[in-house]
């Protein structure tokens, strides 16, 4: 059984695709959702092999979503769209396939054949994703997009990943690893990323540890393992 996942902001569209897939292929839909935030969470959790991804979605579109997924969890992607074939051209080589809405079952069959062949080869999926230019954070019913420049530090704990700006604190579904790679933040601790632009003070402690103070006065620890790279960054 192939493990599939559908992301589309429209319930009817998700249901239709799931029905079509059930008819023609040996695929199990392990998750399906209507926006990028949920999608990141579910991809990390369910690790689908194949992702049917709508391009036009609220706040964060399909292309951007790809830049938020951890490489290790990255599924093969089939874009599903109503009218974005021109935009898709740029992504064509890197994506497995794309489908146009309304979805033609025969076309879908070809796509599934391609998927099965790719999965049998066992090749890894690779996407030339966009540079992440904003961090999606959930806030009630809305998605707040944080400008990476404003981020002072990012901290992960058991409850999830927290983004700190000078004024506020947000929760994000993105992993620390993706944020580190995509945003150019420096890892200073297993659970911390820091934005060097906001560092005003580094206090070295005993045992090769250190502490960083940010412009707004927030403090975060530096572990022994990452002290060297921090010093390098400041040419110390």
């Amino acid at each position: 059984m192939i493990r599939g996942m559908i992301v589309d902001d429209e319930l009817n569209a998700r249901e239709e695709l799931a029905t079509l897939l059930a008819d023609i292929s040996d695929i199990e839909i392990v998750a399906s959702c209507g926006n990028a935030i949920e999608a990141i969470k579910l991809i990390n959790k369910k690790q689908p092999q194949i992702l049917f991804l709508d391009i036009q979605m609220p706040v964060i579109d399909g292309f951007e979503l790809l830049s938020m997924i951890d490489e290790e969890s990255m599924p093969h992607v089939v874009f599903v769209t109503a009218f974005d074939q021109y935009a898709l051209k740029a992504f064509e080589e890197k994506t497995l396939d794309y489908l146009l809405k309304p979805i033609d079952p025969e076309r879908l069959q070809k796509t599934m054949a391609k998927i099965e062949a790719t999965l049998q080869k066992g090749s890894n999926s690779q996407h030339d994703s966009l540079q992440l230019s904003r961090i999606p954070c959930a806030r009630g019913h809305k998605i707040k997009l944080i400008d990476p420049q404003e981020v002072e530090l990012i901290h992960s704990d058991l409850t999830g990943v927290h983004v700190f700006t000078a004024e506020d604190k947000y929760f994000t579904e993105l992993t620390l690893k993706v944020l580190e790679q995509q945003l150019g933040l420096l890892r200073c601790h297993k659970q911390y990323l820091v934005n060097l632009q906001h560092v005003v003070e580094i206090t070295t402690l005993e045992n090769g540890l250190a502490e960083i103070k940010t412009r707004s006065g927030q403090q975060l620890p530096v572990s022994r393992r990452y002290l060297r790279s921090l010093k390098d960054a400041f040419h110390l």
Binding site: E10, A13, A82, F83, K101, P102, I103
Partner: peptide, 17 residues
């Protein structure tokens, strides 16, 4: 918006079922 047209058709196809 062509998006609107194709999305609408897609929705209707799903609802027909």
């Amino acid at each position: 918006n062509p998006h609107f047209l194709f999305n609408a058709l897609n929705t209707i196809i799903a609802i027909v079922r």
